[in-house]
Design a protein around this nucleic acid. Structure first.
Lengths: 147, 147
DNA sequence: CCCATCGGTTCGTTCAAGCAACTCACTCCG
DNA sequence: CGGAGTGAGTTGCTTGAACGAACCGATGGG
């Protein structure tokens, strides 16, 4: 995303997008969640330019979504690990993938399955109500300002 | 987001981001979900430039996320309604808001509550396993290519 | 010694976003 | 009737982010 700042928006969605809404950011987070940790790994997987990747990684570290870890000396080399903050983006990532699967995947169907480790079942994202503890349809949701 | 195309990425997340990952797109969708439907409404709420808003609205209509509806003749005026495809972005939007609430909202706490219509309880996004029907922690998720 | 690897940095180009001014088709007010 | 206001844009110029290719520095391997 560009210019990265949504001035005057007092909304958590806008704040979130200022942090992970830039071009490539979420794809990098997805890669790290899937086990790609190194500069050249991302470079090969995404078609991103090197300077842009440098920028995105630095920013994600700065925000606390990734962590820069030295994995060898001589020569000193670093890789990027996910933090808890980063791991907690999982529902957002899965929700977007799920939506892409439903509406954008060609006839071939989804290219990846999201899987429950151990059980091997399909993982899905759902809305649920904390009070009535029932599943909530997308139509049954509204927002109201917390005054 | 910029240039909008992630070439060579066979991933539903990348496809989704090509469609709603551009700067402003998700904020526009959120606005429409919250009831803002008109050009000037978005213009006032977001600090977006007019030409960019025109572009984003056209693109969202083209993708089928919004629908352009004439609401008066003389002079002809249009507004933008959400489609089913657009409404199904709700989990993704809520997931990002929820993450922003947790990690980025200042001391004041979240500026908005997501609410279950009727019940008025808080709505949350959760991962669930389709096979074992239990809630899934963010750490218990992996992806594997569907060969 | 030369080449390869990894993780970058530098620099010039291209393309999207921002900003201000303008248009068009009306309505409303005096 | 004239002038201001409104809603939904379009046009054109400027700024700044992303792209692409070249380069760098430390080291190891043949």
């Amino acid at each position: 995303m560009l210019r990265r700042i949504y001035e005057g928006q007092d909304c958590s969605l806008a704040h979130a997008l200022e942090v992970v809404g830039e071009r490539w950011s979420l794809l990098i987070v997805r890669n790290v969640l899937l086990g790609i940790k190194r500069f050249d790994g991302h470079l090969g997987d995404l078609g991103i330019a090197r300077n842009v990747l440098t920028d995105r990684l630095n920013r994600l570290v700065e925000y606390g979504i990734l962590e820069r870890v030295r994995y060898q000396d001589r020569p000193t080399r670093y890789e990027y690990h996910i933090t808890q903050m980063g791991r907690d983006l999982t529902p957002a990532v899965v929700a977007l993938m799920q939506w892409g699967d439903r509406y954008l995947s060609g006839e071939a169907g989804p290219p990846r399955r999201i899987e429950h480790i151990g059980c091997e079942g399909d993982v899905r994202v759902d809305l649920a109500c904390e009070r009535c503890a029932r599943p909530v349809a997308n139509e049954e949701v509204t927002a109201r300002p917390v005054t």
